[in-house]
């Protein structure tokens, strides 16, 4: 919950609601990007960028190298899989 997980923004889903689709280790998921857009970084410009995602919200821009390292760390800590599983899950259990 607190470590977050890196992903790459691959498309904007909803301009108005700041929703984008990200790819995270092969999983695709919609996330909210409100916290990383401002005048200098309009929604459109975010496609292709790497971000750190916390519970469905992109919280920080990171570079690709940092994203890779963070993902490795999460795997080593044994946290990547549970995070990915919960991301992939639909909330209708």
């Amino acid at each position: 919950m607190c470590l977050g997980i890196p992903g790459q923004i691959i498309e904007i889903v909803d301009q108005e609601k700041n929703l984008a689709k990200v790819a995270i280790s092969g999983i695709k998921r919609e996330v909210n990007i409100t916290c990383i857009v401002d005048e200098d970084h309009p929604v459109d410009s975010c496609v292709g960028e790497w971000v750190l995602i916390h519970v469905g919200f992109a919280m920080s821009r990171i570079d690709e190298d940092e994203a890779k390292k963070t993902l490795e760390l999460l795997h080593e800590l044994g946290e990547a899989q549970s995070e990915l599983d919960s991301m992939a899950r639909e909330p209708v259990l």
Binding site: N32, V55, R89
Partner: peptide, 13 residues
Amino acid sequence: VRMVYSPLDALRL
């Protein structure tokens, strides 16, 4: 009780 990944999933529910 349902497990969600994000509060946005709860809103969707």
